[in-house]
Amino acid sequence: MYLIVGLGNPGDEYRHTRHNVGFDIIDLMAKKYNIRLNRIKFKGTYGDGIIGGEKVILLKPSTYMNLSGESVIEAASFYKIPKENIIVIYDDVSLPVGRMRLRPEGSAGGHNGIKNIILHLSSDIFPRIKVGVGQPEKDLVSYVLGRFPKEEWETLQKVFPAACDAAEVIIQKGIKEAMNRFNGFTVGGLK
């Protein structure tokens, strides 16, 4: 069994912001794999289904970004899901829009949602799908809580399906295979 967590902030004011790309990808996965996100538990909204022949839980924490680990640990503990089977999808300001990077483990890299998950899991060993949202020129907080310009949003509409595919490859063939296939992924000719 796998737990796939998309990070974001609850509420309409945060919908489709840079910090909520994890939520957007979970919504797309739910649609693609016919999983209804209609249950409230584990300090989040979730649903279960099958992806790549495996049972999965799709989870959108409702704790706000900085406390995402509370939701993740509750769901993982309840279903007895090992850390290596917890896939976290989130925004990364160090990557340009149109780029995606997968990692099997590592530090939070300044991302407070990941920092809180590492704290609650007592481990940094869990697969991540990082989606580039670009680097802010000034204030980080207002940048990540801001919405994308039209052109960037259109670029992300090509990245989101690739992130769904990457999660399925992690489930079916493992993180190394997924990294080989998707770490070079880019939209719009970025290098």
Rank of each mutant, 00 (worst) to 15 (best):
I4S: 04
G6E: 10
N9W: 14
N9H: 11
N9P: 12
P10G: 09
P10E: 11
G11L: 06
G11K: 06
D12E: 15
D12S: 14
Y14A: 01
R15T: 06
H19Y: 11
G22P: 07
F23P: 06
I25H: 04
I26E: 06
A30D: 12
A30G: 15
K31E: 11
K31D: 07
K32I: 12
N34P: 00
R36K: 15
R36C: 05
R36V: 09
L37Y: 14
N38A: 05
K41V: 14
K43C: 01
G44N: 10
T45R: 12
T45P: 01
I50A: 00
I51M: 14
G53S: 11
G53A: 10
G53Y: 15
V56L: 06
L58D: 10
K60D: 09
S62N: 15
M65R: 01
N66L: 05
S68L: 01
G69K: 07
S71I: 04
S71N: 02
V72F: 08
V72T: 06
I73M: 00
E74Q: 13
K80W: 08
I81D: 01
I81F: 05
E84S: 07
E84N: 07
E84F: 01
N85H: 12
I87Q: 02
V88H: 03
V88P: 01
V88M: 02
I89N: 01
I89S: 00
Y90L: 07
D92V: 03
D92A: 00
V93G: 00
V93Y: 01
V93H: 00
V93I: 15
S94P: 04
S94V: 06
L95V: 04
P96D: 14
V97P: 04
V97Q: 06
V97M: 03
R99M: 13
M100C: 04
R101L: 08
